[in-house]
């Protein structure tokens, strides 16, 4: 397991995630000062949907919103590899 994972947002912001911390992708984006979309922060509204261009995520909470292929829900997932997302 790598020490940290890289998260590339819209090809321009480069963030790092420490997999030992229970932070969600949404929180990582917020900490970096990006303004990601969100409503419920609990996986059931789908407002935080982002395109997962590359890499893999794992879900901390079981999401209820439909996840279309190529999308992920930032509020309840965390990267498990280096990822590239588009929002």
């Amino acid at each position: 397991m790598a020490d940290t994972y890289k998260v590339t947002v819209n090809g321009q912001h480069h963030l790092t995630v420490d997999p030992s911390q229970p932070t969600t992708l949404l929180e990582v984006m917020e900490e970096a000062g990006l303004e990601p979309h969100y409503h419920c922060r609990d996986g059931f509204c789908g407002a935080c949907r982002v395109q997962l261009v590359k890499g893999e995520v794992s879900y901390i909470t079981d999401p209820l919103a439909f996840i279309r292929p190529g999308d992920c829900l930032a509020c309840c997932c965390t990267p498990i590899s280096d990822i590239e997302i588009q929002q």
Binding site: H39, C40, F44, C45, G46, L64, A65, F66, R68
Partner: peptide, 17 residues
């Protein structure tokens, strides 16, 4: 609003399925 969000998820699920 919280309930309506859930209802919305169900119609989105049906359409996507």
């Amino acid at each position: 609003a919280r309930d309506e969000n859930l209802h919305l998820v169900s119609t989105q699920q049906i359409i996507n399925l």
